[in-house]
Amino acid sequence: MDDNLIIPDENIAGKIYFIRNQKVMLDRDSANLYEVETRVLKQAIKRNLNRFPEDFMFELTKPELENWRSQFVTSNDSDKMGLRYSPMAFTEQGVAMLSSVLRSDRAIAVNIKIIRVFTKMRQLLSDNLSLKLEIEEIKKKLTNHSKNIELVFNYLDELIDKKENQKPRNKIGYKK
């Protein structure tokens, strides 16, 4: 196995898209990482289609493909980003299954790397969610503190008003 595989995490993370409310990697990007042609990757998948249920892989619809393309501003209309057919999108489980159909040391090494990046991304999202929840909790406490401070000031205002409206009291103590 290729333990010296050097693919920066950022390169892999940049090829993970959010489509149909899930993180996916497109066939052309996967093929690029595995150093095989996209058609070779697709042929291997078609020979092993039973390994790729819908929650592992799906084909992008025309609207999804257009939306994906629009994320990459291209001025040249003839450049369809090298896509003649709708790409296949692989979920994390689908990416894991790819190494079993490609059967090469590079595929295994790349898969391990990709799965680690997916895991890091999931951890980052989880950490972000935890931070958001903590911030909301702090906001609630601050709101309560603000209300309590306002209440104290209202009571102080009432006491000051009472004192101003009271008639002077007789002084007690020794008189000269």
Rank of each mutant, 00 (worst) to 15 (best):
E37V: 00
M1C: 09
Y85S: 03
V73A: 08
K176R: 08
T119W: 01
M81L: 14
Y174F: 05
D2Y: 09
I45A: 01
K167V: 09
K23N: 09
E158A: 13
I112D: 13
N165F: 02
L41Q: 01
R39Y: 10
D161R: 07
Q93S: 11
S30N: 04
G173I: 12
K167N: 09
E59N: 10
I160Y: 13
S130N: 11
T91L: 02
E59S: 12
H145S: 13
M57T: 08
H145L: 14
L129I: 10
F153K: 11
N50G: 10
A107I: 05
K46E: 08
H145E: 15
I16G: 05
I138Q: 14
L142Q: 15
N32C: 07
D2T: 06
S104Y: 03
L125F: 00
V95A: 06
L83A: 09
E35F: 04
L131R: 12
K132D: 12
S30V: 14
T61Y: 04
A96N: 06
T143A: 15
K132W: 07
D127W: 03
D79Q: 06
E150I: 04
Y174W: 06
N111Q: 13
V36Y: 05
I112Q: 12
F153Y: 12
I12S: 06
N144Q: 15
R84W: 00
D105S: 15
I114P: 06
W68R: 11
T91N: 05
N148E: 15
S70H: 08
